[in-house]
């Protein structure tokens, strides 16, 4: 399989990317990296739910 074909519009582990999510807040006044990390950890749980339903149940 070519690498190009494996490129994903929405990468594995992501449902709603931080770039999409932060539009809700406008300017981020503090440490954005920290906020982004926490967002991505929780977003990955939603991803897990969807894919675990598909794969395991």
């Amino acid at each position: 399989m070519s690498e190009e074909k494996k490129q994903c519009k929405r990468p594995p582990g992501t449902c709603l990317s931080w770039e999409e999510a932060k539009q809700r807040y406008g300017e981020i006044k503090g440490n954005e990296e920290q906020i982004q990390n926490i967002w991505e950890q929780n977003d990955a749980e939603a991803y897990d739910y969807l894919w675990q339903c598909l794969l395991s149940f």
Partner: peptide, 17 residues
């Protein structure tokens, strides 16, 4: 073929995770 290829990175990711 394209559908299998589209699923592949996700299945790999879940397996590793």
């Amino acid at each position: 073929t394209a559908a299998c290829e589209a699923l592949t990175p996700h299945l790999l990711y879940v397996a590793k995770r």
